[in-house]
Simulated assay, not measured.
Amino acid sequence: MAQRGLQRAGRRSNLALLGLLLVAAGTGVLGYAVGTPTAGRVIAVAHGAAGLGLLLLVPWKTVVVRRARRRPLALRAPSAAYWLTGLVVVCLVSGVLHAAGAAGIWASSGTPIAALQVHVGAAIVLAAALVAHVRGRHQRPRKVDLGRRTLLGAGALAGGSVVIWTATEGLWRLTGAPGATRSGTGSYERGTDDPAAMPVTQWATDTVPESAAEQVQLSGGGRTVAVPVDDLDRGDSVRAALDCTGGWWADQDWRGTTLHRLVTDHLGPLAEDAQCIRVTSVTGFSRRIPLRDARTTLLATHAAGRPLSTGHGAPARLVAPGRRGVWWVKWVDRVEVLDSPWWLQPPFPLQ
C-alpha cells in the first residue's frame, strides 16, 4: 500500500511539474509574438505564475524523491532528473532577477549578460532535456489523471501560483525595485522619444549589414517595381511602442509610408487572392503581415522626426503596432504581396 501511495504521489507531482513547465514554455514563446498591452499582460502573468508555481511543488517533490532513494538502485530516478532540477533553478532565479530589474548577472569582457538572456538560454536547454526525460518515462495517460482530486489539486496549484506572483509584484512596488515600472510584457523603458538612446539589438544571428539598400524591390500580381528609398517617406505616421524581445521598449513617432499605400501606389489595387505582405531584410530576415494590417503597418524611414540610424534599421524598417520587436524587420530591401496565408511561416525567423 505504501508503495502504491508513493507511486500515486510521484505521478501527481510529475504531472503537476510537467503541466507548469508546459504552461511556462508556451506562454514564454507566445510572449515573444504578442505585444498588445492587454494580451501581453495576460501572457506575462501566466508565464510568471507558472514559473513561480514550481516553488509550491518543492516540498511535495522532495518527499517523493527521499522515499524513492530508499528503493533498489535499479528503480531509482535517473540522474537526468537532477540536471532538470538545476536548469529549472537557473530559469527561476534568472527570471526573478529580470523581473526585479537586475541589469546583468555577470560580465564578460566588460559587457553585462542580461538576466533575460540567461533565462531564455536555460529555458531552451531545459525544453530539450525535458523532452528527452519525458520520452524515457513511458507513462501513459490514465482516467484518474482527470479525476476530481486531480482537478481540485490543479485548481489549488493555479491559485497558489497566482498568489505567489502577486506577492512578488507587491514586493517590487514596496521596495521601489526597477521591476515595479516594467511594462505588461515585462520590458523596461529605454529611449522613448529619443531614438539614439534605444539599445541596438537584433534577432539571434542577425547582424547589422555593412551597406544599406538603395531601393526596395516591390512585387505582386506578376509585377516587380524598384522603389528608391528616398521615395518611401510619404508623410504617413504612427506613434507606436517598439517592444523588443531583448527586454526593453520605447515609444516613438514613426514616419514613412504604410504598406497599403506603398503597394497600391506602385502596383495598383490589390489582387482578390492577395492574403499577406512579406517584408524581407537585406540579411534575409523576414515576416509576413496580414493584409488586414496593411493600412496600419508602416515602412518607416524616420523616428522622432529624425532619419533612422543604421543600428535601428536605416534606410527603412517595418513598424508593426501591437507586435513585439521580432516582427519589426530592419534594413528592408524587399516587399512582396503573396496569395498565401500570413501564418504560413515559422513562429520566429530561423535564419
Rank of each mutant, 00 (worst) to 15 (best):
A316F: 00
R76C: 15
P141R: 11
V200T: 13
A180R: 13
D236W: 00
S211G: 11
Y82P: 02
L56C: 04
V208E: 06
Q217Y: 09
T175A: 14
A274Y: 07
P141S: 12
D273R: 08
G284H: 07
L57W: 05
A177D: 02
V144S: 15
D206K: 01
V63C: 01
V120M: 12
P349A: 14
A122E: 01
A115N: 08
G26W: 04
P78R: 10
A2R: 13
T181G: 09
N14H: 15
G222R: 11
I105A: 09
T36S: 13
T257P: 00
A46W: 09
Q345C: 09
R41V: 15
A320C: 04
A167K: 10
G86K: 00
D265E: 11
S13D: 09
V23H: 12
A314E: 01
L152A: 13
I113Y: 06
H47M: 07
V208A: 10
W106K: 03
G191W: 11
G48L: 13
A226E: 07
G325F: 03
S183M: 12
L262I: 03
V89M: 10
R182E: 11
T38M: 14
V90R: 06
V96W: 03
G110V: 03
G5I: 02
I124P: 05
L242S: 05
L84V: 08
